[in-house]
Design a protein around this nucleic acid. Structure first.
Length: 332
DNA sequence: GCAGTATCCCACGTCCGTCC
DNA sequence: GGACGGACGTGGGATACTGC
């Protein structure tokens, strides 16, 4: 507790310059006497705290004194800050602790980098609440250098050009205005605009990429979380068929591999798993569940259950025992 | 001289390790 | 497990210092 307060005390003095013991006591929620003891401890430890007595007096640090709390370089600090900019801020009940830690990281950075970091962290989003594609953990391979080029373009606010292989299409070059990067379950997406229209690209589908020197068109205020949520909603509403499926836990992965998206998952006491998924279309959904035989059951929609039943009846009809005839009744 | 500030001294509460 | 003592953190009051 005390060590944490000492760090906070130094940061307060750094940020505000001169402060009286009472002001520090109010900020740190301790008595002025405790603040004075802390000041003494800092002085003993070699922190250059100076006191000006009398009216308009107070404590201050030696001008130019910096806290070497982390030794982080710019990229390391950016990684920490972007990690904290996502859901981590709300997770585990550590929101205030994380915010405090992030302030310390920012404070420990060189002056020149500090000013750009706040803007930079708004260009990255990690594990947003809205999961666009799935809850599947799929580690994707990425062409060498693609991530570095795209990330740098996003940070610098430059246009980026890349060779993109969309599904079922011939790869071609595209030039876009980056907005930000989003990572979801080991997949990374580039949110961008192209000729003013919203575009989302998966980095694993980029065969090559290069940052251009031309400045990108980017709104001054960007809420990456909101943009991601909107685009996700549009994607999910784009003609896919949602389904509620029960599957044996041992066959879960097979269903996940066949589904287009997974929106919810819940374990059941009997060892089965209830999944809320989407498929490309009804035909695809029937095929995916049919592969799992009796290890899966479609609970909804009704049209999917009807389609599966009709298919089962058709197969059963095909294999219904044939009446015995002379030709089939062969005996020795 | 007065107001605002830091400094000194003392007492209290809590925590933790040791001993029986 | 309980008693004891030391270390540590904290707060209050008196006092000294400084600038207006």
């Amino acid at each position: 507790m005390r060590a944490d307060r000492l760090v906070s005390l130094v940061l307060l003095l750094r940020r505000r310059g001169r402060m009286t013991a009472n002001e520090l006591a109010n900020e740190l929620e301790v008595s002025a006497r405790t603040v004075l003891r802390d000041i003494e401890a800092l002085s003993t430890a070699g922190v250059p705290v100076f006191v000006d007595r009398g009216r308009h007096g107070g404590f201050s640090l030696l001008p130019g004194f910096r806290t070497e709390l982390t030794g982080l370089n710019h990229h390391e600090a950016l990684a920490l800050l972007t990690a904290g900019s996502g859901r981590g801020e709300k997770a585990f009940g550590l929101g205030s602790a994380l915010a405090s830690a992030m302030r310390k990281v920012v404070d420990a950075l060189p002056e020149g980098h500090r000013a750009t970091l706040d803007d930079a962290t708004k260009r990255f989003l990690i594990e947003p609440e809205t999961d666009l594609l799935s809850r599947r953990l799929v580690t994707e391979q990425m062409a060498g250098g693609v991530m570095d080029e795209v990330r740098h373009a996003v940070l610098a606010g430059h246009k980026v050009r890349f060779h993109y292989a969309a599904p079922d299409r011939t790869p071609r070059w595209r030039t876009v205005d980056p907005i930000g990067l989003v990572t979801v379950r080991d997949r990374t997406y580039l949110l961008a605009t192209k000729s003013g229209e919203d575009r989302t690209y998966r980095l694993s589908r980029m065969l090559a990429a290069e940052e251009l020197s031309e400045a990108a068109e980017r709104p001054a205020q960007v809420d990456l979380d909101r943009i991601w949520a909107e685009r996700s909603a549009r994607f999910l509403a784009d003609g896919h068929i949602p389904a509620l499926v029960r599957v044996e836990s041992a066959r879960r992965e097979e269903l996940l591999n066949a589904a287009r998206t997974v929106r919810a998952e819940q374990s059941e006491p009997d060892g089965w798993v209830r999944l809320e998924v989407t498929f490309e279309d009804l035909r695809h959904a029937v095929w995916a569940i049919w592969q799992l035989d009796t290890a899966a059951e479609a609970l909804s929609p009704d049209e999917l259950r009807v389609a599966l039943r009709e298919r089962a009846e058709a197969v059963a009809g095909r294999y219904r025992p044939k009446p015995l005839t002379e030709s089939t009744n062969v005996s020795g």
